[in-house]
Design a protein around this nucleic acid. Sequence first.
DNA 1: TGACGGACTTTGTCCGTATAAATTGGGCAA
DNA 2: TTGCCCAATTTATACGGACAAAGTCCGTCA
Lengths: 255, 255
Amino acid sequence: MADLPGKVHGKVKASRYRDIAAKLQKDIRLGTYAVGNLLPTETELMASYTASRQTVREALRILIDQGLIIRRAGLGSVVIAAEPPVLFTHSVKSLGEWLRYSNETYRDVTGSRDIVADKKLAAMLKCEPGKSWFLIEAVRRSDQFAAPLGWTEIYVLRKFAGVVKRSDHGRTPVHEQVAKMYGQTTEYAQMEIFVRGMPAPIAKQLGVKAGSPALTVVRRYYGLREELFEVTITTHPEGRYTYTMDMQRSLRPRL
Amino acid sequence: MADLPGKVHGKVKASRYRDIAAKLQKDIRLGTYAVGNLLPTETELMASYTASRQTVREALRILIDQGLIIRRAGLGSVVIAAEPPVLFTHSVKSLGEWLRYSNETYRDVTGSRDIVADKKLAAMLKCEPGKSWFLIEAVRRSDQFAAPLGWTEIYVLRKFAGVVKRSDHGRTPVHEQVAKMYGQTTEYAQMEIFVRGMPAPIAKQLGVKAGSPALTVVRRYYGLREELFEVTITTHPEGRYTYTMDMQRSLRPRL
DNA sequence: TGACGGACTTTGTCCGTATAAATTGGGCAA
DNA sequence: TTGCCCAATTTATACGGACAAAGTCCGTCA
């Protein structure tokens, strides 16, 4: 959607359907067609603009791409926004890329076991207390540095426990392994970043002082029907990890 | 682009053009049409699929929307990717929404002054040492709680210093004020989150212990030609701030 | 060699038409 | 009243055709 025809040096070439789209956009922005209401039907637009159905539909397609309307057979064109809504976007190819660990990092698994969420863990994972999980604990390390980057706790549904046996287990994001082995896809994900004093058990593993500044990142992965199937909690000591995100103004290609 | 026709309960309805699109996608993924090469022309596709030009073009439009091809009059359909590139997106309406402060928070400005970036500050801002900035310092507070949420340092170019005089200064993101007053728009932005021990001067302002865990968020705003025009640094004590981000699998509407 | 021009190819735009599918609303029956 | 089916409306899909605009290719000419 980046570089479609109709653009010349940033300017938009004139054409029948673009003119119609521009007029409709204006009418939507000015409230002639309010949000929630219907646009005129294709037949009406054909009459009022003296254009063919093809041309009218091409114009309406622009409004769809801009997120201004949705269209339904039997219903019509519903105005859902007065302005193109999205201005800035941040995109990632996969949720693995989301975490900006480079390829030189890996998980050094220290152990794994079944665990039942008590009230405190349930709050952290955002699941019901009493839910069963399979826990994988690991130290995140880098090829470059001797000091560990952080401590990782990975909670997956018990039925996915088999991922620990994979040969690429330490270097591939677990949610990708789950997808490959069990076909569980991630439909929705959530991340939380906050600061806390380093918990004593983790401090011991990482060789830092308990209570020292620690950055904790919680990632929750949801499948179909909002089912939470994996949560990872990583905790980093001061100076070992920075989360970075870039955002770009999204250019709307057509018109 | 969320909910176009052709989808029923997540499944895709069969239709001529979707079949053609699916076949072409497969051929692209398998390398029959390699990246950089051309797809068959519309006329050729009409012949090989026994479909009208309209139908073929509808199929190709799907590939365009998926970012697999670009089309040019006189050239053809160039394959630019073997797989739909973007899988997960996080979108925000404005960069103000980016920072998840609700409307109940505001900046309590404690002072402002000119400042020249020394080596240390330049590294933090990612600018050249010696660059001049206008610094606004403020405590971020909430209507709900007595304790301050954090400490904010806002660095803007000196020519934008006038924003402090605005009546809405404390409740509107500064980059929006700059946009309104001076027409400076944000084309690109970057965020960094890391943990550090609370610096003594800030600790004093916030009434917490120096060296206690602190979450620092740096936001850099760039205009046209990569010009850095604003940087904000906010520092939060433990328990006062959590950064949250939601990501949704981007559903490609057609097909 | 390099610039220019024209023929050719390919997509862009626009028109006409027909049938299918989805949605709504009203009438009818339980 | 409630629920179901039918008819009307509206968009979705698909066919046909025509000319314009943009890019490529190649031969000609300086």
